[in-house]
Nucleic acid binder design. Structure first.
Lengths: 254, 254
DNA sequence: AAGTGGTCTAGACCACTGC
DNA sequence: CAGTGGTCTAGACCACTTA
């Protein structure tokens, strides 16, 4: 039956009730909700069809407070963010002394690189524009995924103009202490200025697979530009992050 | 019929095809997709039920590339972000000379305040913690929504300790040129340091209504802390932004 | 008034998980 | 193997938009 005027749809009623029960901690112990068929019985006086129950659960999933596991059930989610400090991580104190800039991402938890792909190839149009080189000019691409607690949280794809990367460890899997930025410094192109463009949107299907997310889950697309002393772009890094796991922090004085 | 092993669900096939057609510009002219019932006929050899068509369209909506208008149809969305520069907007050059810090949000477009609510009230626990005052201490709350192109894009709720706001125009609807920060400066508490914590998640039902979003659409929750010379928190501003309309930019030198 | 998206029913079979 | 979520069908009525 469709909705009557002035009434809220049934599935929203169900979602409201489940949200309240979750907030009340009713499922806190096992972290697990009753099965769909069980909920259908619980709410039998309100709703007749399993589809409507699923609609309510889907709403809660959209809000990021529950997740489903096929063959297993529906589970309450906790939110425990990774704090990513956009300023500290880029201070040369971090990478100047040989620390990896990823170390500052996670407080307590380790961020583990999961496979690296390094390739030298002609720049696509958007990459060329971002780097300020001609389209088709050679660039070095470093592509890598990162895990926290064995869960993928971040895909990072960095582009460096080939003439800056050539002959350095930037083209190697292990860039050595201080990473790419230290290598750029030694090549006479120390990054001194940065820009980060941050955009939040829903995951595309390919990204959802890569980061093990539900389709439509929010991701953050973060593009960082690193400039050297003469304002040349020496690196562009495009990152896709699982938005639900991150808190982005920027601090600055006047 | 359920999915066979190794196959993609039908609704994803439909979504893939529609995504391709949108990218090809097939609907660019009117910006409008065929009606659900028309799509059901178009894809009659693949899919038999309207629910499955709706599932495919819902996927595209989750990805933020189409929207639905009841009684009207499905429309292709364009993405034209508001660039919000987190650094420029907070330089005292912006507000020191009497500009509103909102003016720098929109390039070309105007950001229009839509209703202001000002109230002095005891601080909730989380606000008290953020401001570094005792729970229950009086604070001034300035709550306001902003529109761009007549569309709500931002809800801003600022909290200022009552002893700093008392007797100033902070408690007035119009804070005068330079806004709250100019008033704080004149009270001897010039903000000199800032922190912004940015988190992306799906909209809660109340937020969705407030910003005229679909439930589950991504929003950005941005909390800004302003500190004076002696590191006292002089303002906390909690903002909820329509994520689909914003690009956040942070620039910093080393 | 005609067409549209939104909601709902009462079933069904599948692949996957966990015992 | 029993239970779970995921997908699918073939209908239906409602409120809303557009003309």
């Amino acid at each position: 039956m469709p909705r009557k005027t002035g009434e809220q749809p049934k599935y929203k009623d169900i979602a409201d009730d489940l949200r309240r029960r979750i907030d009340d901690g009713e499922f806190a112990e096992r972290g697990k909700l009753p099965a769909e068929r069980a909920l259908l019985k619980e709410y039998a006086d309100k709703v007749k069809s399993a589809v409507t129950i699923r609609q309510a659960l889907g709403l809660l999933r959209d809000e990021g407070i529950v997740e489903s596991r096929v063959g297993s059930g529906w589970y309450v989610l906790e939110w425990r963010p990774i704090v990513r400090n956009g300023l500290k991580r880029l201070s040369s104190e971090q990478w100047g002394e040989g620390k990896s800039i990823w170390d500052v991402d996670v407080d307590g938890r380790r961020m583990i690189p999961d496979g690296v792909e390094i390739e030298t190839l002609p720049a696509e149009a958007d990459v060329a524009t971002a780097l300020g080189v001609d389209a088709g000019a050679l660039v070095c691409r470093r592509d890598r995924r990162y895990l926290v607690d064995e869960v993928p949280v971040l895909r990072s794809t960095a582009y460096i103009p080939e003439d800056l990367a050539r002959g350095t460890r930037i083209t190697q899997v292990d860039t050595g202490p201080g990473g790419t930025y230290k290598q750029l410094e030694e090549a006479g192109h120390k990054p001194v200025r940065f820009r980060e463009d941050l955009r939040c949107r829903k995951a595309l299907p390919a990204e959802a697979v890569d980061l093990d997310l539900a389709v439509g889950a929010p991701v953050v697309e973060l593009v960082r530009y690193a400039y050297d002393m003469v304002d040349r772009v020496v690196e562009v890094n495009r990152m896709i992050l699982d938005a639900s796991r991150y808190l982005f922090r920027y601090e600055f004085g006047s």
